[in-house]
Each structure stands twice: as C-alpha cells, then as structure tokens.
Amino acid sequence: MKTFYWLVKREFWEHKGGFITAPIVAGAIAFVLNAMLIAVGEAHTAMGNFHSNFSRAYEDADLVQAGAVIDGLLYGMTYLVLIVTAIVVFFYCLGALYDDRRDRSILFWKSLPLSDTDTVLSKVASAILVAPAVAVVVGVVTGLMLAIMFAMVGTYHGISIWPLLMQAHPLKVIVNLVLLIPLYAIWALPTVGWLMLCSAWARSKPFLWAIALPLGTGAVIAWMGLMGGVHGISSNYWHYVAGRLLGGLIPGGWLTEASSLAGLDTSNPAAALDKVNLAYHYSTLAQPSLWIGAIAGIAMIAGAIWFRRWRDES
C-alpha cells in the first residue's frame, strides 16, 4: 500500500502541471470570465440579464431557487474543470507507458522492486480517481468563490448575502460529486484501458494508433454498409465501440445510456436538480453496455500490464 501511494505520488510529481495547475488555471479563467460578465451586466442592465435565474430569484425573492442556482453553479464549474482534466488525462494515458520507454528512464524504474501491475494500476488510479478528485475540489472551490461574488452583487441589489448563501448546499454538492467519481471511473475504463494499451504497446506514435485504429475500423464498417452488405452496424459501432474507446473521459457521458427523464422543468432549477440525483446517475449501472465496456477496459489494462512487463526494445 505504501509503495502504491508513492507510485501515485510519483505520477503527480511528473504531471503536476496537468493534474493540478491546469484545473486551477481553468477555474481561475472561468472565475474571471464570470466576473467580467457580471461587470458588463451591471454596467448595461438595459442589454438584458446575463444571469437570468439570479435576476428572477431577486425579483421573486425566491431563495430556494437561488440556492439551487448556486448548487448548479458548483456543478457547472466542476463540470468545466473536469473537462479540462479529462483532456489532460487523455494525453496522460497515451504517454503514461510510452514516454519513459522513449527516453529509456523505464530502465531506472525497472531497476527498483516495483511490480509492473502496481505501476500500471497506479497510473490508472491517478487517471480516473485522483485527477478527477482534484478537479472536483478545484471546481467546487471556484464555484463557491463565484457564488460569494454573486451574493455580494446581490447585496448591492438589496438582497441580504447570508440567507442567499445559506440556501446553497455546497457540502451536498461535494458529496454528490465525490460519489460520482466511482461511476466516472467505471465509465472511463474502456477509454483509459485502450489508451494505456496503445501506450504500452506502440513502438512509436501511440496517439496515432489510438486514434487511427478505431476511426479506420469505423470507416471500413461504414463502407461495408454503403456497399450494401451490412446495415445498422455502423451507428452501433460509433456509439458502443469508438465512442467508448475514445470518449469515455467526457464527464457525464454515462447519461447517454440513461433513460430520459420525464417532465424535466428547466424553469424550475431546484426541482430539476432534485431529479438529476445520484440515483438517476447510478441507474445507468443497470445497462449491460456499461459493464461490457468496463470489462473490456479491465482486459485492456491487463494487456497493458503484460506489454509493460515484456515489451523488449532492442
């Protein structure tokens, strides 16, 4: 366990810029952009409201809705930061088992009593557990800072700051987001597995292989469809194979597998947030396709471990 902790720590030493700095920068940019929008809104109220839900909350003094909007803000900020982290993690996975083979520093790591299984799993854990956790923390903190800023603007318009903030549920949001990480991890397994397999296997240009193989296969299948041989395979292929191999890191991607929500009222944020709850997210676990993807991901990670152990560059 101690070794595993240090292995993950090593990944964060190496990828501090991607795992920690990038989400913070993304959060900071989002914060500044929002501040600028508010400033514009305040300067030209005639141009309309940039934060219409807020203005509605102000008008109706409907604090429950305002709280839901703040919660939504925390989710939204985290989503934004998670997208940045997802892009970082995508390229991280492609390089994770390749970069040290290219610069031969793999020989140093292999001179230590570290099992290849631990090494690969520490990279998987960094990609789908620790990096998203960092993104959640950064996202929620940014969201809270934004909420405080909005509340202060609200005070300016005569709405007391504390009751407004008290209507938000930052702890609930954090708990929800943290509890979604395992689902995210399960959903991302095929993508992470595929990228790491390419990373461990390719003698050069893992990026090209990882992209070209699924796209090329898709093109061949589409062509066969056009030739009139097979029908209906192509869209399934893009959805269930190429999509899962390359797009699994997109946060919330599992919702494409969820049954659609009936009666979602976007003009009522509190009720809407209530409906898109953890139970709804986790209902996707009932979909076999999610599990088939996860099993394929685990198999590809096992393949990556095998290549990590035996790939012999000479």
């Binding site: 190496e14 520093s105 020989l107 140093f108 001179s111």
Partner: peptide, 11 residues
Amino acid sequence: FIADVAVLPRW
C-alpha cells in the same frame, strides 16, 4: 543495475 548514463527521468 545502472543501464547507462542518463536513464534517470529528466523531470
């Protein structure tokens, strides 16, 4: 083992 010089990771 020391494989040859410069196999320590640069970062």
